[in-house]
Design a protein around this nucleic acid. Structure first.
Lengths: 332, 332
DNA sequence: CTGTTAGCGCATTCAC
DNA sequence: GTGAATGCGCTAACAG
């Protein structure tokens, strides 16, 4: 018993326009099959009655819902909103709606959302997934799936390659006189985290400078601030953080302890989500999240249209953005 | 969630269990109407076949999709993500999914999204809507609707009341010596903007200080920066901005022109989305967006369950957060 | 070109 | 308790 309030259906329009229901349907889905004046008459009637096609009914009949799901670890992390926004508007170009899922960095939550969305989406984009490779593969086997910042072979993925930017950062730090640095790591299951950590280590090794790792298991201001004690204990003179939020927390913690930035200590962030808002303004690695969102969605759309999933591995390069938390360091 | 491609329907299960389709349906929706052993037999068959109820078909039949829509002007504006996140997790408590809509501050886009979502959501939350009252009323007549930061009588709405905070701000500015201030306005159709402008004017009038208005039609860093010329031209010594983004832009523009903050000029933001990240750290008005998101969604859920829409008008108070873009002003 | 006839998968009256 | 119909709103053959 639906008893909907907006009860204007295809039948109402058909009656008003004096045509069959199927013609109304056609007027909206394949106008070329009808004579122009019939289409006009139907559209006019539809407009007048305020008819809006019921997507649920259409989906039941066609099997195509015109929806996709976009799942992210944390909407409130400034890295994601631009990506979401870009994905959203790309989806719109294809007249698709997007379900947004927030996992709170919790794999179980992620799995649960995937299940909850299943059956009403045609495909899904998983951003910075914290799921295991096996779980991801399982889901990918059931429906079109595109990954962002997660590298699982065989599954279409778009990767923001922070290695070039991070390497630049380490080189930059070496050049201004640092001999020992620390990488403040992000979520353990994050592909980006692994990639960044590896990039730091590799470049440091090449340049002959020392590097230690300090954990900040969640990418946030608070986690960064809490890591400061451990950072200082290493004796390093510079920190490369997993992301800008963490870096900002580190900055705050350092300043709180009376350490002068950048004179006594250098800090580098990642993702450039803060712009020049911090003081001193943060040296960081550029971000390609908007492109990532757009490409991920258009890739998914392409999969939906062609029905085939190529093993694409789309890399988006990055570079260092030098601001004021590094240059100005005075070697002692 | 378990895997395999679906395609197994209620009929398959019915056949396998040797019962009618309606019994299978009941086994999942009203098990108490069936004998325990029948339920067990059906569930066993369902499990064995990997049956999973088709959400779309169920929705078409019942009119309940278990989805709601959340529409915001700009996902990337830091004011919204915490609200989205809160709404999201509140929805989850009721096992609802949320469609996210981004309007890019465009009323036509907002209207279009509303139509596109129609038929697959049970209700919608409209945040900071740029639609006309009439349009909002029209949509509210068709389906459960809750407003955030928009005051339309008769429609359930939750309002972040920045008046107290803004008034405090003006008083604060007067106390530290300002005699003329400017309000840098936000989107013309924004309820928050009107409310804030009125609060500034009222308090200023009471305190006997002058106030002018400068327009920044879109709430963004860039818009704020561009407004600086006009702000300076008024001869005011302090600015209250529509929001923190705008304030941050103003700050940047001012500093760029060599104006010392807060010595020569005071700036106040609104919404406290930047924390203490700017330099000098921004004096601003507190924000209640998380509560707004939670309350909006639980209100909507309540409407969905009871079927009635009370004319609630939920106000969330605010206060001034004094940081370093105001105190330190030196009167000349 | 357009009308007629079947379903899509499920929930829900009714009978039994 | 359970089964047999009916319909949710729409699309997709199949005729004319």
């Amino acid at each position: 018993m639906t008893g909907r309030k907006d009860g204007v259906t295809i039948s109402d329009v058909a009656a008003a326009a004096g045509v069959a229901r199927s013609s109304v349907s056609r007027a909206f889905t394949r106008p070329d099959m009808l004579s122009p004046e019939t289409v006009a008459r139907i559209k006019e009637a539809a407009e007048r009655l305020g008819y809006v096609p019921n997507h649920t009914a259409r989906a039941l009949s066609t099997g195509r819902h015109g929806n996709v799901a976009l799942i992210v670890p944390d909407v409130a992390n400034p890295f994601f909103p631009p990506l979401i926004r870009a994905a959203q508007s790309e989806a719109e170009r294809f007249d698709f709606c997007v379900f947004l899922g927030n996992t709170d960095e919790d794999p179980r939550q992620e799995d649960k959302l995937l299940g909850r969305f299943a059956g009403q989406v045609e495909g899904v984009v998983l951003v910075s997934s914290r799921l295991s490779d096996a779980q991801i593969r399982a889901h990918a086997a059931m429906r079109p799936l595109v990954l962002v910042n997660r590298d699982v072979e065989g599954i279409p993925r778009i990767l923001i390659d922070s290695a070039p930017g991070v390497s630049e950062a380490v080189r930059h730090l070496a050049e201004i006189g640092h001999r020992k640095i620390v990488y403040v790591s992000g979520p353990p299951t994050s592909w980006s985290n692994k990639q960044r950590r590896a990039a730091v280590r590799n470049s440091a090794a090449k340049l002959g400078i020392e590097v230690e790792t300090v954990a900040a298991p969640v990418p946030s201001y608070e986690a960064g601030k809490e890591a400061v004690g451990a950072i200082l204990k290493t004796g390093a003179t510079a920190a490369v953080a997993f992301d800008d939020l963490t870096a900002q927390g580190i900055l705050a913690g350092l300043i709180e302890r009376g350490i002068a930035i950048p004179k006594d200590f250098s800090v580098v962030g990642c993702d450039d989500v803060l712009g020049a808002a911090t003081y001193p303004s943060l040296t960081t690695v550029s971000n390609r999240s908007v492109e990532a969102g757009t490409v991920a969605l258009s890739l998914l759309m392409q999969m939906l249209q062609t029905g085939i999933a190529h093993d694409v591995r789309h890399m988006l390069g990055t570079h260092l953005v030098i601001r004021n938390t590094t240059t100005g360091f005075v070697k002692k």
